[in-house]
């Protein structure tokens, strides 16, 4: 206290060298295998979509911050992560301009109007996806198989329009595990290959950026419920956006609870919703909506799972 003044500030009081740019660039790096798988299976078009979404997200953020006279913070990579995640949860044949609209919507409406990074209630990339699905449902439900022939599904000429979950839900046709694991199936750009997502997730865990509570309680709940209802749990884990959502989206720092118990409750909530939507909902897939709904419940979960302060006395009624 050289100046003799006592500086009073709110927590946190200790800082580490880990900052937003480092975490976000690690996330970008961890998503690389999924991007690579998407481009490998769906071609250069997927690369174009990724570039367009990332680019428009960064440009939108910079433009809005400049317009409103705020410091420009695109170098923290958070806008790039939002754009990339959005690109990974849209179908490969989506027109590029639609992806750009989604990216702009994610950053401007879902992130910026709430006050920017750290203030948004909902995961911006998922809001972008929900917006695109509500706005251009025809484009957003048009899927493509990486290979044209699909010998395990005799008699379906509509093969190009069905994801494994749709085939399961409406036709009771099960795509083999190995195809799901490596990603030779119809789906969004990033969800196609389970192993690529798991590689990235392992890296994030090794770097200590994501914990095990949210993804494991999320996936575990889906496994338990689908097994209870007599469905194949492994199939449900490997299909759709479950792995991508559980490791990369549900774990978003801003929109998920910070308390340990809260994280488990949040993961279970996500899992229950995904299982309910997949088993009983009108949509074949529910990861996006499940996470968005639990985002809304985050503040409530934190309120009920805050640890007791040391020495706290129970309030008299």
């Amino acid at each position: 206290m050289e100046s003799g003044k006592l500086i009073v500030s709110s927590s946190p009081h200790q800082f580490t060298a880990i900052s937003t740019p480092i975490i976000m660039s690690d996330v970008l790096f961890a998503l690389m295998p999924a991007c690579f798988a998407g481009v490998w299976f769906f071609g250069l078009r997927a690369l174009g979509m990724i570039a367009a979404c990332v680019g428009s997200a960064v440009v939108t953020e910079a433009l809005l911050q400049k317009l409103c006279g705020k410091p420009i913070t695109v170098s923290d990579y958070s806008a790039a992560v939002t754009g990339l995640l959005l690109a990974l949860v849209v179908p490969p044949d989506l027109p590029i301009w639609v992806g750009v609209f989604g990216s702009v919507f994610s950053i401007s409406i879902a992130k910026f109007t709430f006050g920017g990074l750290g203030h948004n209630i909902f995961n911006p990339a998922l809001i972008g996806r929900a917006f695109l699905l509500a706005s251009w449902p025809v484009f957003m439900t048009k899927w493509r198989w990486p290979i044209q022939e699909a010998p395990w599904m005799p008699g379906f000429d509509a093969v190009t329009t069905a994801t494994p979950l749709v085939l399961m839900k409406h036709f009771n046709v099960k795509v083999p595990y190995n195809m799901l694991f490596f990603g030779k199936v119809a789906g969004t750009i990033g969800e196609t290959s389970a192993i690529a997502i798991l590689l990235g997730a392992a890296y994030l865990m090794y770097r200590g950026h994501i914990g095990i509570r949210i993804p494991f309680s999320f996936i575990g709940t889906v496994v338990v419920i689908t097994a209870l209802f007599g469905q194949d749990p492994l199939f449900h884990v490997l299909t759709g956006g479950l792995l991508l959502g559980a490791f990369f989206m549900a774990t978003d720092y801003v929109t998920s609870p910070v308390t340990p118990k809260g994280k488990v409750a949040y993961g279970i909530g996500c899992g229950v919703l995904v299982a309910l939507i997949r088993l009983y909902g009108g949509y074949p897939e529910g990861v996006c909506y499940a996470i968005l709904i639990m985002n809304a419940a985050t503040a409530l979960i934190e309120r009920y799972t805050l640890p007791r302060k040391f020495g706290e006395v129970k309030k008299l009624a």
Partner: peptide, 15 residues
């Protein structure tokens, strides 16, 4: 057609 029938449904509005 989505249910294996003969009528072409409206795109994006199977239900």
């Amino acid at each position: 057609r989505e249910d294996g029938g003969q009528i072409d449904a409206i795109t994006g509005a199977t239900i």
